[in-house]
Design a protein around this nucleic acid. Structure first.
Lengths: 134, 134
DNA sequence: GTAAATTTAAACACTTTTCCTTAACCCCCT
DNA sequence: AGGGGGTTAAGGAAAAGTGTTTAAATTTAC
């Protein structure tokens, strides 16, 4: 039975960081370079966001496919499409237009450039009207 | 930027599983052995619990060390110790005696055998009286 | 009790992470 | 310009993770 995602080293650095120590100070305490502390901290944060994403995926299991935002689509037209598809399924989207656009962009920054969709985005919805992307 | 913890293979199996397919059926669909499906599914569940544990750790960052339950201690004596230490710190533990014992055992089953502590358990508490273990 | 479904173990090839060092670069501040 | 805090790149060695097979064992269902 493995532990969490974070290595002992990573936890160590996060704890010191929480206390407000600088990377340089931590480097001295744990006897390594500040560059290494930076790398370890970065890996730790990366692992944490991977953990979040993993649990996020579980929600998509309870969700059904709603529609696909085709590459090239204008982001501002997405809400209209999504609302229409949700209505067909008798579901109410939990987000208003503005929140929806923000949620889209926040969920996967690399997939949008300005207001254009760069690659296909699959949209999923659950009974609560929550949206997930894959 | 890496994705979540789950590999494509693992997500695939979880999705089919969610639909109610057996491991044998999935094995045929994805062209491998049923034993392998089992292994993959197990790894997926393992990854999910690691993700949970990882985020759990973040809460401990907001917590302070309360005490250590020494190896060999009688589990039934733990609440008394914990309440006393919390009081010293002016904090109120969020759990009553029974819930506390259950929380201890649930949090790390391998570290208890019957009512005995098998290896040292570090106890942390936050401002809300929530307890975490490390 | 038999068959189907699931789980486990061992071993192997392969890929990915981690941690580390060195050296450079960025931004802000006085 | 120099110092403090932070980040990045390149490279290497050790550790951990993944998918797979085969074979045995265990649980569940009829």
């Amino acid at each position: 039975m493995k532990q969490g995602l974070l290595t002992d080293r990573q936890k160590e650095v996060l704890r010191y960081r929480k206390k407000g120590l600088t990377q340089q100070q931590i480097a001295e305490i744990i006897h390594t370079s500040k560059a290494n502390v930076c790398t370890i901290e970065k890996a730790a944060l990366e692992n944490i966001s991977r953990a979040r994403e993993t649990l996020e995926f579980l929600y998509t299991l309870d969700a059904v496919h709603l529609c696909t935002l085709q590459s090239g689509l204008d982001l501002l037209k997405a809400p209209e499409i999504i609302y229409a598809e949700a209505e067909k399924k008798g579901l109410k989207v939990k987000y208003d237009t503005i929140s929806l656009i923000n949620r889209l962009r926040d969920a996967n920054p690399e997939r949008f450039r300005g207001r254009q969709v760069r690659e296909d985005v699959e949209i999923y919805i659950n009974k609560d009207g929550d949206l997930y992307f894959g």
